[in-house]
Write a protein that binds this DNA or RNA. Structure first.
Lengths: 197, 197
DNA sequence: GTCTATAGAGTGATAGAC
DNA sequence: GTCTATCACTCTATAGAC
């Protein structure tokens, strides 16, 4: 498992990344200062800039680490069935609601980065294409396996399901007690599946 | 119709509000400076502060104007059937895709204001309760009229439909050509309705 | 009603000491 | 590796001229 035996320098980098994830999630990239992040780690902001040469570089590192950890939590190397993929997504949604920082980051940044000038704009544009594509494939798999109650436009369903997850997460940030992301997703899928998950 | 016969002062206020909506939508509240807004109107930022005494006051005015215009575009004084409400929502979604600034503002600000310290946090918290409530009522109406193919949890459906709209709008901001908000919403509703809209 | 000037604080980033 | 000091800039907001 990569990223576990860390040098001292590597450990400090990890601390900074963790603090950055939290703060970018709470108040966005533009709302966070290098001093805020440095303070949370217990150093000064030039101290931080020794490890990351600019604020943008720090943002890139945050997004890259997220991608790496996504790849390890999802076992993306097998070829699961549509139903299996759907189950995993619900599990991920349940898992996320126990580790708020992760979902907070993406809910906040994905909206902030709609601005074409935002340093993470291209990242999110690519990511949306990737994720909606994966969900489209999932619905194609479900259709091929005869798991769906009716024909669907897999392309539109992919976009729809990603939109639903994103929107639910925003509402969940406003009132965690009255929104259950995983339950709403399961409820959504039930309308399309012959057998509930 | 209120807000149509404007004094000269009122007209300048309107110009400022329009510019503020655009910029808050493009780069968020935190990403926008009073100088940016003032420049777009052709005055300096102290000139702007004559009309709105602080940046927060300007934000409040932007949100208040939005609420007022919502109330006039929706004829919320009649008691439409569930189907009628659903149709209006689709019409609104279609209309919004022709006036991007409006939807941009809410997609951007609603995520930015998840931070409890954000000046618009309580506004959006209240708004989500109101809008999800209205959609819950719509699904209750559809159920009562026998328009649904199966029983639903109207509460969850309200949250779900708002989440879907929000999420679709974010994706639409990333690639307007490959996402059709109104079509995806119509497609979503089709899974629940006996007769398509 | 809008301007110039400015206060007072915060920003990302660099230089150079230790 | 982390610090202090500082640069050059931007921010919101105010004072006071016109």
């Amino acid at each position: 498992m990569a990223g576990e035996n860390l040098t001292k320098g590597g450990r400090r980098r990890e601390q900074i990344l963790t603090a950055a994830v939290e703060l970018f999630g709470e108040v966005g990239y533009r709302g966070t200062s290098l001093r805020d992040i440095a303070q949370r780690v217990g150093i000064t902001h030039p101290g931080l800039l020794y490890h990351f040469h600019s604020k943008q570089e720090l943002l890139s590192a945050v997004l890259a680490r997220r991608d790496a950890s996504d790849e390890t939590t999802f076992g993306l190397h097998d070829q699961p069935s549509g139903r299996e993929q759907a189950k995993r997504i619900l599990e991920l949604a349940e898992h996320n609601s126990k580790t708020p920082g992760i979902i907070e980051l993406f809910a906040t940044l994905s909206a902030e980065a709609t601005d074409p000038e935002h340093p993470a704009h291209e990242y999110f544009k690519d990511r949306y294409q990737m994720v909606t594509g994966a969900f489209r494939t999932m619905f194609e798999g479900l259709a091929a396996d005869g798991d769906l109650v009716a024909e669907v436009d897999a392309e539109v369903m992919g976009v729809t399901m990603v939109a639903l997850m994103d929107g639910l997460q925003v509402q969940w940030l406003y009132s965690p007690d009255s929104v259950d992301v995983a339950e709403a997703m399961r409820n959504f899928l039930r309308a399309y599946l012959k057998d509930p998950l």
